[in-house]
Simulated assay, not measured.
Amino acid sequence: MNKTEAPVVNRERLLDAWQKTLPTTLNESDRAEVLADAADPDVYRIHIDTAGHSGYSFDFKVTYLDSREIKVEFVDVEKDRVSVDEHTDIIQTLIEDYVRHIHECAQVLHKLTHG
């Protein structure tokens, strides 16, 4: 898909909005960090630490395809800072859940990206 229109808000403002909004779409005790990608202005990196004692942390890459649509890519999962097999049922379920939450956050931010 070609980029038809980039988000209309400046990158710092959108990053700030992601940082404030994403935690509201996750489980209360999950922790999230959103960073701007150093190489691509349309990409954000998301790191999520799961709630509870599981010790899982997930990394995702979010790319703005245009002002309304994002692409979410799973990058890695670790447990206690060691990479684990992402093909287990529980990890796949968590990945799907977090991708859904990331899309929910992007939906909330439509008022900024497609102003």
Results as ranks from 00 to 15, higher is better:
65 L>P: 00
115 G>D: 15
96 E>G: 00
47 H>E: 11
81 R>I: 10
20 K>Y: 13
114 H>D: 13
28 E>Y: 02
73 E>H: 13
52 G>P: 02
50 T>N: 05
68 R>N: 14
110 H>I: 14
18 W>A: 04
1 M>V: 11
56 Y>E: 01
7 P>S: 14
96 E>W: 01
99 V>F: 01
39 A>M: 02
79 K>M: 05
84 V>L: 00
56 Y>N: 00
27 N>E: 14
4 T>A: 04
76 D>C: 07
24 T>Y: 03
41 P>D: 13
75 V>W: 09
6 A>P: 10
75 V>Q: 09
35 L>F: 14
24 T>N: 08
49 D>K: 14
5 E>S: 02
23 P>I: 06
33 E>F: 00
38 A>S: 04
106 A>D: 01
23 P>E: 09
65 L>W: 07
106 A>Q: 06
14 L>W: 02
31 R>D: 10
41 P>E: 11
16 D>I: 07
47 H>Q: 07
79 K>P: 07
47 H>F: 14
35 L>T: 12
50 T>K: 02
74 F>W: 01
92 Q>H: 12
73 E>N: 12
16 D>C: 05
20 K>A: 15
35 L>G: 11
24 T>A: 00
27 N>K: 13
97 D>F: 09
39 A>W: 06
111 K>L: 11
11 R>A: 02
105 C>A: 10
39 A>G: 10
61 K>Q: 12
60 F>E: 07
59 D>I: 11
11 R>C: 04
49 D>R: 07
39 A>F: 04
15 L>P: 03
42 D>F: 05
30 D>W: 04
20 K>H: 09
106 A>L: 00
33 E>V: 13
84 V>N: 01
64 Y>R: 01
35 L>K: 12
16 D>W: 05
19 Q>R: 13
86 E>P: 09
105 C>E: 03
63 T>M: 07
